[in-house]
Design a protein around this nucleic acid. Structure first.
Lengths: 81, 81
DNA sequence: CGTGTAAGGAATTCTGACACG
DNA sequence: CGTGTAAGGAATTCTGACACG
C-alpha cells in the first residue's frame, strides 16, 4: 500500500515513534509524505514500515545522512513494484 | 486492508461522497469506523469500498434499511477473509 | 545529531439542529 | 429518506525556536 492516506497521529500509533521523530526523519529526507491542502502530512503503510526501519538503523548506530543512500535505494526499488 | 487508519477527509476524497453522506451511512449502521480518543472517525480501505457500494445501491433505488442485510452479509463474510 | 517541549495559529472533525421534500 | 448547511466547540497538526549534549 503506497497510497498516502493516514495522518501523523495514526503513524505515531503504528510505529511507536513520536511526532517529533517522524517530522525529523522527513526533514532529513528519509520519508516523503504527501500534504493536504491545509498542510497536514499524509503517510502510506509503506512509509510506516520505512519509518520503523529508519528507527532500527538509528538505534544500531547509523546517522540519518548515512541512511539516505540505503533508504533511497529501497525507495527507488519500491517505485516499480 | 481492514485496518482503520484514515480520517473522514481522506475518505471523502477517495469515495467522492460528502462528509454528511459518510456520517449518515454510519448512523444507518452501514459502516463501522473506529474512533480516536478524541472522537474522530477512522476508516479502512475496505470501508471505502463499502461506502462506494452503498452509494451505488442507493442510486439504484434501495433504501438504507434494505441495504443493512446485504451489507451486513458482506461484513460477516469479510471478517473471516 | 536526534529528540523533548512550550507557544500560537490554522485546519480538521464533531455533534445537534433546522431545512426540504 | 437522504442530504445540505450554518454554529460552536474540541481535537489534530503545523511551524519555528530554545534546550541538551
Amino acid at each position: 500500500m503506497s497510497r498516502k492516506v493516514m495522518g501523523i497521529g495514526m503513524v505515531r500509533e503504528l510505529t511507536g515513534l513520536t511526532e517529533r521523530q517522524i517530522r525529523y526523519y522527513e526533514d532529513r529526507q528519509l520519508v516523503f509524505p504527501d500534504r493536504t491542502s491545509g498542510g497536514a502530512r499524509k503517510f502510506s503503510f509503506e512509509d510506516v514500515e520505512r519509518l520503523k526501519e529508519i528507527h532500527r538503523k538509528l538505534r544500531d548506530g547509523f546517522h540519518t545522512f548515512e541512511l539516505r543512500k540505503t533508504i533511497m535505494a529501497d525507495h527507488a526499488h519500491s517505485i516499480d513494484t
